[in-house]
Amino acid sequence: MKPAPKPTTGENIARIGLGAMMSWAGTSHLTFARKDFQAQVPDWFPMDKDFVVLSSGVVELAFGTALLALPKYRKAIGTGLAALYVAIFPGNVSQYAERHDAFGLDTDRKRLIRLFGQPALVAAALKAAGLPNR
Rank of each mutant, 00 (worst) to 15 (best):
V122M: 04
G104I: 04
A128S: 05
P7D: 01
A62T: 13
V93D: 08
A4Q: 14
A4W: 12
Q38N: 08
V122H: 02
N92I: 04
L81T: 01
V86K: 04
P7K: 00
L61E: 09
A20H: 08
H100Q: 13
P42T: 11
A120Q: 12
P7I: 00
N12P: 06
A102R: 07
L131P: 03
P119A: 06
L61N: 07
A124D: 00
R114G: 06
F32M: 13
T79L: 10
S56W: 13
A33Y: 13
T27Q: 10
L70S: 09
K72P: 03
V53R: 03
L70K: 07
Q118P: 08
S94M: 13
E98K: 10
G91K: 05
G17T: 01
V41Q: 05
E98V: 07
V59S: 05
G10S: 13
L68H: 00
L61M: 13
S23L: 13
D106F: 10
N133S: 14
G104A: 05
T31N: 10
L105I: 10
A39I: 04
N12W: 03
L112G: 11
A87R: 03
A20T: 13
I77Y: 00
A82D: 01
T8E: 01
R34F: 14
L67P: 01
D50N: 14
Q118D: 13
A25G: 10
A39C: 09
A66S: 08
S94T: 10
Y85P: 08
S94G: 15
R111G: 09
K6C: 11
I16R: 02
F37Y: 15
G57E: 00
V41S: 05
L81Q: 03
A87V: 09
Y96S: 09
V52D: 03
W44Q: 14
D50R: 10
S56M: 14
R109C: 06
P71I: 00
W44M: 12
F103M: 06
T31Y: 06
L126R: 00
T27L: 15
I16A: 01
S94R: 07
L18S: 00
V86R: 03
A33K: 13
L105T: 09
R99H: 15
I13G: 02
T31G: 10
D106R: 07
G64C: 08
T65H: 07
R99N: 13
G80Y: 00
M21I: 13
G104K: 05
G78R: 00
W44A: 15
L105M: 14
P5Q: 04
T27I: 11
L84H: 04
V52S: 04
P5T: 01
M21Q: 11
G10I: 03
P46F: 09
A83L: 13
N12T: 06
K49F: 05
R114Y: 12
R134N: 12
L61G: 13
A25D: 09
A97I: 07
V93I: 14
S55F: 12
G91F: 04
G10E: 09
A128Q: 02
F89T: 04
M22F: 15
A82F: 00
P42S: 09
A76E: 12
R99E: 15
D106Q: 05
